[in-house]
């Protein structure tokens, strides 16, 4: 009986499909199904749009999306677009703190132009999820980087600045291992410390450091470890104090942190050598260029 039922379902499906196919193909030969959702005819050319076109799209091949499109976020994620007044200051911010440091260092411009993501998305606030959590920043396989909380723009505010720089340097770092692989044996340096995508968030910052990682999220996979380490190294002014320099210890916790720092140091050395070898760019030079710009 089950087999017969299944056959009937298939037949009915075939019949419906045949009808549907006939309907679609027989009436309007010229019709296209990929009609653009967005009507380009009302896409205005403001001064801001022209600035973006000249300075980002034509200059770097990088599209800047500041007008809301709901497929920039996943279903169930709730977020608002940016104020139009914040877009130009945000462009200035990413130019100053992300693009220009690469342009300042040897081979940096070539590297940047050849690896720049195709799409940058600005979102006004944080992303609220149905489960009550908040997403701070997202990226899509190096092709898209999404900046959240653009409406809160204040480059002098360390928390806001850190959110944006951590996002962009982390996501941009992914392009390196995606294109050139991770440094040889990178994942073996702190191999016992990795957690997983579903459990990294139970760690505190100190617990992550004791395992040899710059953040709990870095423990989620070697790829994220690579991206987090590069990002923290570039934007974190106190990177050496927090993650490299050995403390004088009198407690077990302190000794554990020192052991973790030694692992971070070993990973950073490997990353730095690999980065320069495959990109021709000195990570230390980019860090210096970033740090010189911080208030």
């Amino acid at each position: 009986m089950e087999k017969k039922g299944f056959t009937q379902i298939v037949k009915r499906s075939l019949g419906i499909s045949l009808i549907g196919l006939t309907t679609l193909t027989s009436c309007y030969k010229e019709d296209k199904l990929n009609v653009p959702v967005k009507d380009v005819s009302i896409e205005i050319e403001t001064e801001l749009d022209q600035y973006i076109e000249t300075n980002f799209t034509q200059e770097y091949g990088m599209a800047i999306r500041y007008r809301f499109v709901d497929n920039y976020v996943n279903p169930g994620e709730r977020v608002a677009p940016p104020r139009i007044e914040t877009v130009r200051p945000m462009l200035d911010f990413i130019e100053e703190f992300w693009i220009n440091p690469y342009l300042d260092v040897p081979n940096g411009e070539d590297f940047f132009r050849n690896h720049v993501p195709a799409e940058i998305v600005f979102l006004g606030g944080l992303i609220y999820n149905n489960d009550g959590t908040v997403t701070l920043g997202t990226a899509d396989a190096g092709a898209q980087i999404t900046f959240t909380n653009v409406n809160g723009i204040d480059p002098t505010n360390e928390d806001w600045r850190t959110l944006q720089l951590q996002t962009v340097f982390h996501e941009f770092a992914h392009t390196v291992h995606q294109r050139y692989k991770l440094p040889n044996a990178f994942e073996t340096i702190a191999s016992t410390g990795y957690t997983g995508p579903g459990s990294w968030f139970v760690l505190t910052d100190n617990q992550a450091l004791e395992r040899g990682f710059v953040s709990p999220y870095a423990t989620s996979s070697p790829n994220e470890d690579f991206a987090e380490t590069v990002a923290f190294f570039l934007f974190e002014s106190d990177f050496d104090t927090k993650f490299i320099a050995q403390d004088t210890c009198q407690t077990e916790e302190c000794l554990a942190r020192n052991e973790g720092r030694a692992l971070v140091s070993a990973k950073l050395t490997t990353i730095s050598e690999h980065y320069e070898k495959v990109t021709g760019v000195s990570l230390e030079s980019i860090r210096a260029a970033v740090q010189n710009r911080l208030p």
Partner: peptide, 10 residues
């Protein structure tokens, strides 16, 4: 109808 940049509805 999509209100593309931030305003009172947002």
């Amino acid at each position: 109808l999509i209100l593309e940049t931030y305003g009172v509805f947002h």
